[in-house]
Design a protein around this nucleic acid. Structure first.
Length: 258
DNA sequence: ATGACGGTGTGGCACCGA
């Protein structure tokens, strides 16, 4: 079975591309971030026609996450229990899949703007809250996938300019410590379980021909729990949708579980 | 590099993203 994550940067604009991509990529689960729409505007019918159940946590203008699944969703949690948040950034659900019962946690992590900003402080608190919640969640759900737009490069390989961007947003020691804290819960970065092309990224700025020049970052991740690790068959970034007209600035990341 | 590009909501631009 396959799971994917994709920051679509407005589902209203990208819905045709999402439907095209689903038609060409038979994933069982697709986790979306940056819907940028309220739940009453979510295209439930179109996605149902494509064969997907939807668990949605929307918000007007900003943020918003959803889990699309070929099988029904159970035990939906919106945002991080125990962490008060105005912004719609997390949705979790349990799925009965061909690979067994699976807990899927989909996150649109805080951007953080700049290391000295209020938004960065919020990012750090948010990451603390996420880790504290996941610790318990992993005990209840040993088969767990944490995926989404992390807005963190895990290490220098994930950046087109690790030296020039050192200690800037997405590259700070503090952010990477938080990423490692998630790994320390017993999670594995599935992308790095395999040999990957040099300079593999999942996001490229719209400006300055960044995609054509491959000036990007790998900030979209799929982490799997210990119990799932032996089932991981592959993890890859699909750059094709980034070549569309009017693309999202992010590319989908796809995990194959055996 | 102050910005670039693209999305939203507003209102003739400002704000935000990464």
């Amino acid at each position: 079975m396959k799971l994917a994550t994709w920051n679509v940067n407005s589902l209203s604009v990208r819905l045709p591309q999402v439907l095209d991509w689903l038609a060409a990529n038979a994933v069982d689960v697709l986790c979306l971030q940056e819907l940028k729409l309220s739940e009453d505007k979510f295209p439930l019918k179109e996605l149902a026609a494509a064969g997907y159940h939807s668990a949605v946590f929307g918000q007007k203008t900003y943020n918003g996450v959803a889990i699309l699944s070929r099988t029904p969703t159970h035990d939906i949690v919106k945002n991080i229990p125990g962490f008060s948040d105005e912004q719609s950034r997390v949705i979790a659900t349990t799925l009965d899949t061909p690979a067994g019962r699976l807990r899927v946690v989909n996150g649109y992590f805080v951007n953080g703007q700049a290391p000295d900003s209020e938004k960065f402080a919020y990012k750090m608190k948010w990451l603390d809250g996420l880790r504290n919640w996941l610790q318990g969640e992993l005990r209840v759900h040993p088969n767990l996938v944490l995926l989404g737009d992390f807005n963190i490069t895990a290490d220098d390989r994930d950046s087109y300019d690790p030296e020039g961007l050192r200690e800037t947003i997405h590259h700070t020691t503090e952010e990477r410590r938080h990423f490692q804290a998630l790994i320390d819960l017993g999670l594995t970065d599935s992308f790095r379980m395999f040999e990957q092309p040099e300079k593999s990224y999942s996001w490229w700025d719209y400006r300055e021909f960044a995609f054509r020049r491959n000036r990007g970052l790998r900030i979209d991740h799929i982490l799997v729990s210990q119990a799932l690790k032996p089932l991981v068959r592959s993890c890859m970034i699909d750059k094709l949708p980034r070549k569309n007209e009017r693309p999202s600035d992010h590319a989908p990341v796809v995990l194959e579980l055996g």
